[in-house]
Design a protein around this nucleic acid. Sequence first.
DNA 1: AACTCATGTGAATGGTTTTTACATGAGCAC
DNA 2: GTGCTCATGTAAAAACCATTCACATGAGTT
Lengths: 237, 237
Amino acid sequence: MSWRKDHRRPERGYHHGNLKEALLQAALGLIAEKGAAGFTFADAARSAGVSPAAPYRHFRDRDELLASIAQRGFEQFEAVLTRAWDDGRPDTVSAFERVGRAYLAFARDEPAYYSAMFESGLPTDVNPMLSAASERAFSVIRAAAERLAALTPPGVARPPALMMALHIWSMSHGIASLFGRGDAARRKMPMSAEDLLEAGVLIYLRGLGFPTDRRSPEDPNAPTGRPRGPWDQKSAT
Amino acid sequence: MSWRKDHRRPERGYHHGNLKEALLQAALGLIAEKGAAGFTFADAARSAGVSPAAPYRHFRDRDELLASIAQRGFEQFEAVLTRAWDDGRPDTVSAFERVGRAYLAFARDEPAYYSAMFESGLPTDVNPMLSAASERAFSVIRAAAERLAALTPPGVARPPALMMALHIWSMSHGIASLFGRGDAARRKMPMSAEDLLEAGVLIYLRGLGFPTDRRSPEDPNAPTGRPRGPWDQKSAT
DNA sequence: AACTCATGTGAATGGTTTTTACATGAGCAC
DNA sequence: GTGCTCATGTAAAAACCATTCACATGAGTT
């Protein structure tokens, strides 16, 4: 049952056996703990139980390790967004909102990945593998926007899907960066990041001519009430 | 004999005379050059022509210097946004868009400040002066949103101004972070960051019920043309 | 002129990055 | 099994940075 010295740490011989993976995991933990800037190469080596020079057998330098993490992050991000999109089921608009929530959930649940992906100051364009992975993640949002754009009601101008995707991505990224994480940079928030994003997306879609009110336009429950907006969806009192 | 200061500075006595300011300026240049992460305390000292220990007479540590820069950045940011808002002249909506463009212009023209403010990983809440400065900058956007919210057409639900401000800020910040800077993280962009933000804001405002089309609704130049959206505002062919 | 104290220096400590020469042992040929 | 080879790990060292401490300087004050 013991295939490699993968499991436990019985007695690490001279060779680690799986150092590259161990370094990635160690770095991930350290970034989550002390931020992308505070993470050090030597610390990762110490975490993995090897000398400070060992990592250089697997990564050219600290930046390459960071880039590997960012790339893996984009791959997981793509998977998460793809699953949330679920090819637009059960309906395009609600699947689209699910993608938005998945975006925020990823930023919150995987701060280390998110940090490496967006806040590590890595030059994105010099690493083709990295920028390709990033592009694939974005293409999920873009594909969803294409489907949404195709649903534009008749008589309404059809927006460019790429522009829609960039808007939604920007708002998601802005909310995640400014308000999305645990306790950092938190301001007086009247609502959760998720609700903020959902309301923003609904308002935006309404601005494009989509009908987004899930209540019937003439709500029998509020015949004389004030007009309602998408931001009321969760605040029914 | 070797000059004590590598640069031609008239005052080269034992005391610098204005070291704190010189360090701030030096750090600003270094951050612009090598990013917030790459900037080193010793480098700033060298730039100012003093020993590596001298900066400790003015800043507790590297983070405090970074925080000082971030604070000054928020102050300049506030001034820039306030000037752009110009108390809502000549009309609220166009002044609001001017604020958005000013946001992007600041991120582009002052990457060092922007980096220190938003990308340096500083704990915002532990420094009261810093978070207050950040709050004051945000309050400009918030005040503009208040004025905008007050203009909600009759019969349309009035959105919470704070929510509007958070949405606009998020989109601005997202665009600035993802697409706003010189050559970093640039993707296939169908339009400039400024136009992207302007279109996004107009669509968002339309979603809130604001009339935003600057063309007359029945445009005589396009009597049989396709329907138009805010994204067409700049693309008149 | 003498005193004081903010401000700057030099040196020392301990950590990080990265390179270089060397050590180990896993996989493979035989 | 024996012996070869090479990927992988180590130790040592140079260069750099953050931080501290004892000490030096000189500007402002008395």
